[in-house]
Amino acid sequence: MLQALLHKKLKASFVDPTFKPSEDTLTSSVIGLLQYLPSDILSSILKDACGICNSFPIEIGDVLDIRFWEHWDSNNTTNSKLVEPDVLIVTEYYNIIVEAKRSDDGGQYREQWQNEIIAYRNSYSDDGHKLVVLALGGNISLAEQVLKIGNDSFTVFCASWFNLLHAISKQFENDYPAHIKRLLSDIINAFEIHGFFDIEWVNTLTHCPLNSKTVTVFSQSGTFSNFYQLCIPLKTNHFSWEI
């Protein structure tokens, strides 16, 4: 949220003055808080969010910087003015472009990833880090993809917000210090403001005894209608029960 505020992305979200969650407030709230986690926890979460058999690096190195909504040079892209990825995560070994969508329902497309890779290379010199893309939300398929641009190949990792939230929730199983758990809790709260809730399994469904005679009480035609008499129909097509 703070990032969205700093980058003036909240105009459409405070209306009348009701808060309207948006793609930018979701990105800002979630990644804006993820950035404060230790690097090993962050990389574990991102890897888990990308699925079971993905090649997302286990070790991305220390997170050096996280930048939101930068404006990159659009030369050789299909954008006319600029290219604006959602987040750039700079680590010791990787530069991770994050392209986020508001929901998990669709919206990601290859051309946009391509534009962002080209624009990144326009705007930054080669620092020896491996460049990858994380497509977060809006994926029709969660299988990782490979983009070829010239002679180079780039991996696009696809994750859903649902999987990212679940990956974060699972971190509570670890024995972390209280301040880490508070951060994780805030991230989960940020998800909930935006309508994302973690999975509840059947093991948390509690047994609540019901009286086995209840169905009989309602099924017997005499029982209920002893107290609720059909009144004389009004001059409509409706029947009414008079109490």
Binding site: I52, I140, S141, W201
Partner: peptide
């Protein structure tokens, strides 16, 4: 819980 489970299955089997 049923809806959560189905969404989990959909994500795991990568259905759209």
């Amino acid at each position: 819980r049923m809806m959560d489970i189905v969404r989990f299955i959909g994500n795991k089997l990568d259905f759209p």
